[in-house]
Simulated scan of single mutants.
Amino acid sequence: MISVAVHRNLLRLIGFCTTPTERLLVYPFMENLSVAYRLRELKPGEPVLDWPTRKRIALGAARGLEYLHEHCNPKIIHRDVKAANVLLDEDFEAVVGDFGLAKLVDVRRTNVTTQVRGTMGHIAPEYLSTGKSSERTDVFGYGIMLLELVTGQRAIDFSRLEEEDDVLLLDHVR
C-alpha cells in the first residue's frame, strides 16, 4: 500500500527487508522529526516553529491527504492523522507518515470495521459510533492536528484536569 502513494508530502518508502525474524522498512531520514516534537519536546536551543512555517506545514499535510483521497487509485484513508505522524524534512516541509492503520477504499464495499483504529483525541466521533471510516475520518484528524499546530497543545492532556474539566483539546478550544 505504501508504494502506491507517491507524493512529495507523503513519506516515501525507499526499501524493505524481510527475514524469518524481522521485517524492516527503510524511509528517508526526517531531520526535524515530527510536528509534535517541534511543538512540545524541544531541547534547549532548538528553534520553535514560527507562524509561516506552521502555515507551510498545514498546507503540506493537506496536500498529502488530498493526494491519498483524490488521486490514488484505489483511494487510501490514513486513519491516524496527528501531529506525531506529520514528519518534517530538513526544510521543515510536511511529510505525512505512519501508514500502519491506513486502509484502501473499495467503492464496491462498505468501510465498516469491527474494531475502531486510531489515536484517542484524533478519532472522529462518527467513526467511534458507527465504525465506518472515510475521508471525513482523516479530515477530522487533520482538524485536530491543526488545533495542535496553532495552540501547541496535545489533543488529550490530563494535566488540564487540574484547572478545568476538558481533557480533549477540541473541548478546551470550544
Score class of each variant (00 low, 15 high):
K82C: 08
E31V: 09
A102H: 07
A61S: 15
R117N: 02
A58K: 08
S129H: 07
V81A: 06
D91V: 00
A155M: 06
K82M: 09
H7R: 10
C17E: 14
A102K: 06
G143R: 09
I144Q: 01
R109S: 12
H69R: 06
H7F: 06
L13A: 06
L168D: 08
M1W: 08
E41L: 13
T53P: 07
G141W: 04
G45C: 06
L39H: 05
I2A: 12
S159R: 10
G45I: 11
H78E: 06
P20N: 13
E148M: 03
I2C: 11
T119V: 02
L39A: 01
V6I: 15
R108Q: 13
A83C: 11
H71A: 13
F16R: 07
S134K: 03
R136M: 12
G97W: 02
L146S: 03
G141T: 03
D89E: 08
E70M: 12
R117Y: 02
G143N: 10
R117L: 15
V48D: 04
I14D: 12
E93T: 08
Y142L: 11
R40K: 12
P74K: 05
I2R: 11
L65S: 06
A62G: 09
G121E: 07
V96Y: 03
F158W: 09
R160Q: 15
P47R: 15
E162L: 12
D50L: 11
S159A: 14
G97M: 05
G64L: 05
H71N: 14
H7P: 03
L146R: 01
V105E: 05
R160H: 14
I123E: 05
E93S: 11
V167E: 11
L161M: 14
A58T: 07
R12E: 12
E135M: 13
C72V: 06
G143V: 10
Y127S: 01
L128W: 11
E41R: 15
V150Y: 09
V139P: 03
V35W: 02
Y142E: 02
P52D: 13
L128G: 07
